[in-house]
Design a protein around this nucleic acid. Structure first.
Lengths: 148, 148
DNA sequence: GATAATTAATTAGCAAGGCTAAGTAATAAT
DNA sequence: ATTATTACTTAGCCTTGCTAATTAATTATC
């Protein structure tokens, strides 16, 4: 019972902390003229290389129509481009442009500057603690999304 | 230099972990017929008690018009109600209803069940580690949003 | 006490980003 | 050859963010 209630409380705080963290960086992202969904998708393409629309949607945990529109916007802004997959002409391959890679890095910089301001008050030991916890969480979340 | 790059990496992972965590619970929230913004605002009212619209907007880090519409939706669903502040008749006081408190608890349960599944693979020591990190982060984020 | 300035909330209207359902085109299977 | 499946897009809905402009109440000033 104490176990359950503690876990519930932790889940609540995790949720609320995530919400507030994202609201904090939101201003920076939109200042770049690129929203979080676009930035996140672009990041997958830049770091992971060319990828099909379906795979990108899966990676971002959104439905294909949603990703299709996000890619529309990225293309319109010259941050990514579609290419037909020659081997399977139903499929498209999404790849970044030089501009896309540059904008992504700038977005990261802005974001990290904002978060760094928040984290700068923390002691070295606290930073390490957060780092370890993030690694733990990522592992747990990934396991979850793989299973379903 | 190593410092900066480490901090940048941590910020990136914090950001991405937050996004993925929220996407994970999103399905559960919308299953309750209540979106994340409404749930979060309702939670402030339920746990913090009656509050003015402006203060609620500030607490949720959104603009008053955004909050006004969120409260509209909560009212329409019978989860909260507006009351005129007798002392200052420009202001409204938002308070929860019995149904609001109940729905919030149900939402929490659904969410915690989902997160618990993710966290259930963690050792007790890892849970404590995450708990400490969350507390640290909350402190840091709060300080940030107070300063601006 | 009347007028002006400020404050609290709302309304109107836009954009991003989530969804489902339905359509099109290409490939795979029968 | 026909049928089924697959990849993606289009159309249309909802939520949630914003700014600008409006309304109503309070506070400050003359």
């Amino acid at each position: 019972m104490a176990q359950h209630s503690q876990l519930e409380h932790l889940a609540d705080r995790l949720h609320s902390t995530s919400i507030h963290l994202l609201r904090l960086v939101r201003g920076q992202d939109t200042a770049a003229g690129i929203g979080p969904a676009r930035l996140s998708a672009l990041s997958v393409v830049v770091f992971g290389g060319p990828i099909s629309l379906n795979d990108l949607a899966r990676a971002e945990q959104v439905r294909p129509p949603t990703m299709s529109r996000i890619v529309d916007a990225l293309e319109k802004d010259g941050l990514a481009r579609r290419r037909v997959n020659a081997a399977d002409r139903r499929a498209v391959v999404i790849e970044t442009t030089a501009r896309g890679a540059r904008v992504l890095q700038e977005g990261r910089k802005r974001r990290v500057r904002m978060l760094a301001k928040s984290l700068s008050g923390l002691k070295r030991s606290e930073l390490l603690q957060v780092e370890r916890a993030v690694r733990t969480l990522q592992k747990a979340l990934q396991r979850q999304s793989e299973q379903g």
